[in-house]
């Protein structure tokens, strides 16, 4: 640690709690929690259909009350996720277009891919091979942006194809009949990609990799310690420090009971996700 005196340590004989910085707003953590819950619900009720010939799928369907129950939960989760998606888009629109907030659509804090992201990607590969130093990331690293856009695109594609099947006769008024055939292929394949990507790649990148293992709590509490901040987003940390805005991001540490609840919820979600990943791979490779 080169800078930052607030690092956990002993100062004048008394223990000082590590400084905590806010990364996500409560609204953003709530949206993430909603996406997690509904995504798990959608995967749990969608995968049995994708792999409907697997004995496990049939057992699950029978246990939860048949296909009607599965479809009901699937649609319910889909509607909630759609609302969360619209809330997020609305928020971006409000912040970026109405309030004209800087850094939403372009710049170091934007989710939009920047030239730096491509450089970071190559730098990171060089670092993986031991050919260079670790790149210093901004507010959102390139794989985080990929996660974001993968989910964004996924929700649009899966959502539209899903609603097309749900209201097939209505959509057939302006779509050719084969589009309904395509809808199932798109819905199923994109969902399979989402499931495999989230439960394998996103889980590893964000939660299970050494350094974050067993869980990165920042998305659950919205806050992280200074050590994490500086380690994971060195560029943003030094940029804020240079601009003198670091202090404005300091927040109170989350209460221990909140952390406990968040941790349990997080572990349950990861456990369900990894189980579904294992079952999906089993079903996929067994035919």
């Amino acid at each position: 640690m080169s800078s930052g005196g607030g690092k956990s340590g002993v100062m004048a004989g008394q223990t000082v709690a590590p400084k905590v910085y806010r990364r996500f707003t409560p609204m953003q953590t709530l949206l993430h929690a909603t996406v997690v819950t509904t995504f798990l619900g959608l995967a749990l009720t969608g995968l049995p259909l994708r792999f409907s010939t697997s004995p496990l799928a049939k057992g699950f369907a029978t246990t939860v009350g048949g296909f009607a129950a599965i479809l009901f939960f699937h649609k319910m989760c889909a509607v909630i996720l759609t609302l969360a998606f619209l809330a997020h888009v609305g928020q971006i629109f409000y912040r970026g277009v109405i309030r004209r907030e800087k850094g939403i659509f372009w710049g170091p804090t934007s989710m939009v891919p920047q030239w730096k992201d491509l450089k970071d990607l190559f730098a990171n590969f060089r670092w993986f091979m031991g050919l260079g130093s670790k790149p210093r990331f901004e507010r959102y690293a390139y794989w985080e942006k990929f996660d974001y856009w993968a989910v964004f695109w996924g929700m649009v594609v899966i959502g539209i194809s899903g609603y097309a099947m749900w209201f097939a006769p209505f959509f057939a008024r302006f779509l050719p009949g084969w589009a309904l055939n395509a809808a199932l292929i798109i819905h199923g394949d994109e969902a399979l990609l989402a499931v495999l990507f989230i439960f394998a790649i996103h889980f590893f990148n964000t939660h299970l990799r050494p350094g974050s293992f067993p869980m990165d709590m920042v998305v659950l509490t919205g806050r992280e310690t200074e050590v994490e901040f500086e380690e994971k987003r060195a560029m943003e940390y030094s940029r804020l420090a240079g601009e003198g805005k670091l202090e404005s991001r300091v927040d109170l540490p989350p209460s221990s009971s909140f952390v406990t609840v968040a941790r349990i919820a997080g572990f349950v979600a990861v456990a369900i996700g990894l189980t579904l990943l294992a079952l999906t791979l089993m079903a996929y490779f067994s035919g």
């Binding site: 590969f125 993986f128 495999l196 990148n205």
Partner: peptide, 20 residues
């Protein structure tokens, strides 16, 4: 799309893990 995304990130993940 499915296999290119998963394939790319599988390599990315394995290399990353090994490095760490």
């Amino acid at each position: 799309l499915l296999w290119s995304v998963l394939g790319f990130f599988a390599i990315h993940t394995v290399l990353w893990f090994t490095r760490l």
